[in-house]
Design a protein around this nucleic acid. Structure first.
Lengths: 219, 219
DNA sequence: CTTGACATAGAACGGATGTTCCGCTAGAAT
DNA sequence: ATTCTAGCGGAACATCCGTTCTATGTCAAG
């Protein structure tokens, strides 16, 4: 798509059409577009609309009032199916306690809160749950107080995953990158200035979930 | 919704309006509705449309061609569009360079890439843009390499906001909580183990955006 | 039976809307 | 200098479209 070539007028037209359609439920007329972007002549609006059609940004229906719609990325409802995944917010995560895992059978049940995640941010959509971090104990994973961690129930992990682990001998939950190294396991903090933890006995380690996403809301 | 009271005609009208809007991107005209449901008279269509308005199923704009839209759940278009906000991903953010701000006029359409954010995660939806962090220089803000920062164009900030600032004397971009303290400005790292930076001369400080959201994708 | 509310049909009116044609200007190409 | 093209403005036109008015039929309540 050769879209860097839009003139200032054309950009404003596209933006106006988008906003108008969103606000009113139907597209603007040629004269409404003209008034919005400061064009007195309907023929000029018509001319630029046809340019936008050539650019592939717009579709038009001839001889139909308001017969235009934006294409592609600003597309309409039909393309927007299942764009949002609702992930249940099942609890909080402390350093001092194991992760409270949701019951396997009905993940949505019992959670009164949930968080919406756009589908494009996730590679999978099954077995997901979210936890809110409490306290500053996960700072070495660059995860702070109040951050939301979206995890996937993943009994079997693979090298390089960031996981939530419960270390039974230390009685501690942490978020680390995990690597298998022979019989041992290496837990690597996300903060590159910090050193790894080597777990000699893998039985003291329980992987409770694979971190898929971290979200921090401000204000 | 008290829709058991709808006549057969009115039900078909609602269904047709819904399908037509979905297929064409704009609502049907009165005559198109009439033809679809087998009504020869425009006044009868108009009459039944007004009935649907009374039922709360339809909204109409007077004297506007195709000036109607379905309300409630049938209004897929407006609902779905509101669920996801597409934020343009306008560039990357380094410690060593000022933030590349999007052109003020139409931020939506210059960027080739974009990131979807569920509406519930954001409190506002205007003037947003996203930057991908490059490098580990923002680790004191608990923001790592590859993280995506959603910002709002905000020339005027208020105490406690996390902002992206360009420090002209240090030639450095950082993410910090910002507080006005008399004539000075205090920049507080998100990491509580680190101390603040005090800026004596606010003219060496340029607030380039207010951070609304930080997203970290793993795998 | 009469009345009145409701639903429908048809026609006409006026405004809204897309289309087309003509003329003008600025700038690049020849 | 001349030609060509892209872009713009204005006006006229035919049609699309919402609105309104009148007339007709149905049906239940009085």
């Amino acid at each position: 798509m050769a879209r860097g070539k839009l003139s200032d007028r054309q950009s404003r037209m596209v933006e106006f059409i988008h906003n108008f359609s969103r606000d009113n439920g139907y597209p603007p007329s040629i004269r409404e577009i003209g008034e919005a972007v400061g064009i007195s002549s309907t023929s000029v609006v018509n001319y630029n609309l046809n340019r936008l059609v050539e650019e592939g940004i717009l579709d038009r229906d001839q001889n139909v009032s308001r017969g235009l719609r934006l294409t592609e990325k600003l597309a309409r409802a039909s393309d927007r199916l299942a764009e949002v995944i609702r992930v249940p917010l099942v609890g909080r995560i402390f350093a001092s306690e194991p992760v409270l895992l949701p019951s396997t059978d009905s993940p949505m049940f019992g959670a009164d809160e949930a968080i919406d995640i756009a589908r494009g941010l996730l590679t999978e959509d099954d077995g997901l749950f979210a936890l809110q971090v409490k306290g500053d104990s996960m700072i070495d994973a660059m995860v702070g107080d109040g951050d939301i961690v979206v995890m996937k129930r993943a009994p079997d992990w693979s090298n390089g995953d960031m996981v939530a682990v419960w270390l039974s001998d230390r009685e501690e939950t942490t978020l680390k990158y995990i690597y298998r190294e022979g019989r041992k396991v290496r837990l690597q903090p996300a903060n590159p200035t910090m050193g790894p933890i080597i777990i000699d006995d893998p039985r003291t380690l329980e992987v409770q979930g694979k971190v898929m996403l971290v979200v921090r809301r401000l204000n």
